Computed example of a mutant assay.
Amino acid sequence: MRSAPIRWNGDAALAAIRAGAVRGVRLGAEHLLQVSRERVPIEEATLERSGVVSVDESSMTAVVSYDTPYAVRQHEELTYRHDAGRTAKYLEGPLHEENGTITEIIAAQVRRAIQ
């Protein structure tokens, strides 16, 4: 019986998977930001322009946020009237609706990293 040497690159594989996951988290959050920008209430577009993505690579988490003094109120107040296609819950709604797409974006980046 002959033996063949096996070369294990586990650390490199894990690093590639992690890098792919971080890239996927960032891209997934950017996707969510784009979808939510299409729904954010708009007067002068200040709220829309204030949307940003922040990624913490160490915990592989991302945050999509809007930074105006009235962003939270606009998001939570269901009685405000908005232009057609614009709505309260402009971030929460897309988060739930795009969950599958965001998950697939992350998975695709992990698969790409290990090919």
Rank of each mutant, 00 (worst) to 15 (best):
R2N: 09
Q34H: 09
V53Q: 03
T103L: 13
H31T: 09
A62K: 00
V55P: 01
A19F: 02
R73I: 07
A84C: 12
T68W: 05
E30F: 02
D11Q: 03
G10T: 14
L91D: 02
E57W: 02
P5D: 15
A4S: 09
S65K: 05
V72Y: 11
G28D: 07
H31W: 12
K89H: 14
A19M: 03
V35D: 10
I6A: 02
D83Q: 15
I17G: 00
R49F: 14
R18I: 01
N9A: 11
H96N: 13
G28H: 04
H75T: 07
M1P: 04
S36V: 06
S59I: 08
Y80P: 00
T79S: 15
L33V: 05
A62Y: 01
G20E: 08
W8E: 00
V110T: 14
G85Y: 06
T79D: 15
E98L: 06
G100L: 13
L91R: 04
Y90N: 12
V25G: 07
R7I: 11
I102N: 04
D11K: 09
L33F: 02
H75Q: 10
P5Q: 15
I106F: 04
W8M: 04
P5H: 13
H82C: 10
A16V: 07
N9S: 10
E48N: 07
I42Q: 08
S58N: 08
T103N: 12
G93E: 14
E76K: 08
T61F: 00
M60S: 07
P69W: 06
G24V: 05
I6E: 03
Q74I: 06
Y66R: 01
A107L: 00
I42K: 05
H82K: 10
I105E: 08
R49V: 12
A13V: 15
V35T: 12
R112M: 13
E104C: 03
E97P: 07
S58C: 00
L14S: 11
G24H: 05
M1D: 04
A29G: 01
S58K: 10
P69A: 09
Q74W: 03
